[in-house]
Amino acid sequence: MALSIEDIKKVAHLARIEINENDANATLNKLSGILALIEQMQAVDTRGIVPMSHAQDLSQRLRDDVVSKTNLRDEFQKNAPILGNGSQQPALAGGLYLVPKVIE
């Protein structure tokens, strides 16, 4: 399957990575090469083969329903990003993480 510049833009949008026209072209070239490598898989007949998601064929372990975590908000929020748009303050207010307005 040949990749198009539209595919690159669509995927970049899905992945939330800004990409300009120049970069999109360069990326198209490199990704096409990688995709050509991947296409070698299509020669294999895989009918009836159970997909392998994990290295070991085991089942999920369950944890007991107990509260083991304490409030470490201050510790965690030391890593809050800088707000930006002219502000050098952390993107925090009243314990909340600040982001541009979420429109529903």
Binding site: R16, I82, V99, V102
Partner: peptide
């Protein structure tokens, strides 16, 4: 949003995501 690089300038949420990650 919670840690890591955030772009210095952005217009809205989508722009913040895309620029920060780029």
């Amino acid at each position: 949003v919670r840690y890591g690089h955030r772009a210095a300038e952005y217009t809205d949420l989508m722009d913040m995501y895309s620029k920060s990650r780029a």
